[in-house]
Amino acid sequence: MLKKDNIFTISVFIVLLIIPILFDDFYINNISYFMIWTFISLGLALIWGMGGILSFGQTAFFGLAGYSFAIISINFSDIYAVGIWSPILALAITAIFGAIVGYFLFYGGIYDVFIGIVTLAITLVLETFMAQTAGPEWTVGNARLNGFNGMQGMPPIGIKIGEYKFDLQGIGQYYFIVFLAMFLLWLLYKIKKSNFGLILLASKEDRTRVESLGHNVKKIQMITFSLSALLAGVSGILYTNWGGYITPSSMGLIASAMPVIWVAASGKNDFFSVFFGCILLVYISQTLAVNGAQYAIILMGLILVIVTRYFPEGIILMLKKLLTNKFLSKK
């Protein structure tokens, strides 16, 4: 089964790898942009698809990571290789925050839809707070938080050695994202197959039974939650780097619903489907906005309704299964 799966995964990545040879800068940057959103979706697929825990506030971690990266890299822009260690530090902050929230949730006995609402409240608190930080008193070192208008002026991810400078932009950024996605997908499949993943999957079905077998479910859920926060953080940092800009509205209600929609529509139980579906959905919504004028949003809504109505498992996952059965089951 896994091998059959791999064929689609590999062919999609081969296409992704040769795209820069065939297309110009615009397409490279635009596809990079689509792929940026896959990490937050993968994080959600991890905690929701595998753990059965719907977090509505993954954007809190997206924003936290983006802002941390911006603040750190603005403040220490003169220090050696800040473009490399500042994103890493920002990710560490995000993962720790994720772990704290996870501790609060799971050791506090919060479950089901309540998790969705608590995480939504967290992201809205962050948004409301950041939106009012326009005043001069809201600075961290040299970095002005700049309220609702958003932060800018952060140096890009990259490294400068003497005269030589490498910024994570354009084609470099593109390949970095592709390889990072490949690595993380591989890692997520490993987690799924691991003991850890099996306990997590089992806890989705029956938490108390898994606990009675002597596994510390709360701890496992907390770690998973922290990992999903980390993945959301990857998206946040890459997004900030892509546009040189991060804003509180990326933690708002509409922004926080997007990953949930991408994941649910693609098929939350399969990481590759989520990766590919997320790219496809962001692409479709952009293309509709370019061509469809005021009907774009209506069309997007229709697509989502039809997908849930007729493809309850997620459209990409169902297509993948269909193709697998049709072409590969004869062997």
């Binding site: 719907l54 619903a257 949930v260 929609i261 949003i297 809504g301 989502l304 309704v305 849930t308 309850p312």
Partner: peptide, 19 residues
């Protein structure tokens, strides 16, 4: 399938408000 209802109702909300 309460969680899938998120996607469908979001879609409905887009359709209605834009209409």
């Amino acid at each position: 399938r309460p969680l899938d209802s998120v996607v469908a109702t979001w879609g409905i909300s887009l359709i209605v408000s834009q209409s």
